[in-house]
Amino acid sequence: MRAPAHILPGSGQDGPSAEAGGYEGTRARVEHYFDRTATRVWERLTSDAPVSRVRQTVREGRDRMREAMLSRLPADLSGARVLDAGCGAGQMTAELAARGAHVTAVDISPALVEIARRRLPRDMERRVTFAAGDMLDPVHGAHDYVVAMDSLIYYDAPTIAAAVDRLLGRISGAIVFTVAPRTPLLMAMWQAGKLFPRADRSPVMVPHSPARLAAAMAEAGIPARLKEIERVARGFYISTCLEVAR
């Protein structure tokens, strides 16, 4: 269930509020968008194919964010189990497997999972298990680390806290994830996005500050620390990397 915390042309949002329907309802909308509307866009964006100047900034931002997230994990992941929660087209999955990790790569979109499976180098296939479905499903088992790049950006603070709590019960290390930051720039992008055709719009993102997320976790009684790692801003891509550890 992956999307960038940014505004692509045609992805106009209406404001910083969560979509109705809670986790299940929002997840269904995200699945519909990425599996039926945006698959070709994301396949091209995550490849080496030429893209527009706007989408090039998104590509660069995502590359930098992936580096920031990977910096929180050991360089040698031999034997470690990592859940790529929202694997998208598989760029993070391939880098984790290249470090020696056994990766469970999950995405809400079966179409994106197939792209990720097709792109994975053959010599890494034995270290990756792909699955289409809910990244929080306990069927995926226990892991040492979880990475969730732009997978939780559509949810409000209590829902993110609940997701973190569910994942913490099945890992021994840290959860590294991203959120859309609450900034004037992002609000301006929401307004600009309204100029584009409704048919191309992505689901609504919910901006957060680390302090508000930490407060939501504390209110839920989650015994973990939230740490801000890095904010990445490249043109139309803006996202904040956070880490949760016990």
Rank of each mutant, 00 (worst) to 15 (best):
M1H: 15
A3S: 14
H6T: 13
P9T: 11
P9S: 06
G12A: 13
Q13E: 12
G15K: 02
S17N: 05
A18N: 01
T26G: 05
R29P: 00
V30Q: 03
Y33L: 07
Y33F: 13
T39V: 15
T39I: 11
W42E: 10
E43W: 00
T46V: 11
T46R: 06
D48P: 02
S52A: 06
R53L: 09
V54T: 15
R55W: 06
V58K: 01
R59V: 10
G61S: 13
R62N: 06
D63H: 11
R66D: 00
E67W: 11
L73Y: 05
A75I: 12
S78R: 13
G79W: 07
R81Q: 03
V82D: 05
C87M: 05
G88C: 09
G90S: 10
G100S: 07
V103E: 00
A105H: 00
A105Q: 01
D107C: 12
I108S: 11
I108Y: 00
E114Y: 11
E114S: 14
A116V: 09
R118W: 04
R119N: 10
L120F: 13
R127N: 05
V128S: 09
T129C: 13
A131V: 04
A131H: 05
A131M: 07
A132N: 11
M135E: 01
L136W: 08
V139C: 05
H140G: 02
V146R: 02
A148V: 06
S151C: 12
Y155P: 05
A157I: 14
T159P: 01
G169W: 08
G169M: 07
S172D: 08
A174K: 13
F177C: 01
V179F: 02
P181V: 14
A188I: 04
A188S: 12
W190G: 13
G193K: 14
G193R: 14
G193Q: 14
G193I: 09
F196C: 10
P197H: 03
A199Q: 14
R201L: 10
V206M: 02
P207G: 02
P207H: 02
H208C: 03
S209K: 11
A214E: 08
A215T: 13
A216P: 04
E219L: 14
A220M: 15
P223R: 08
P223L: 15
L226D: 01
K227D: 00
K227N: 03
E228F: 06
V232P: 15
V232E: 12
R234M: 13
R234W: 08
F236Q: 10
Y237F: 12
Y237K: 04
S239A: 09
T240M: 01
C241P: 03
L242C: 06
E243K: 01
V244N: 00
A245L: 14
R246K: 03
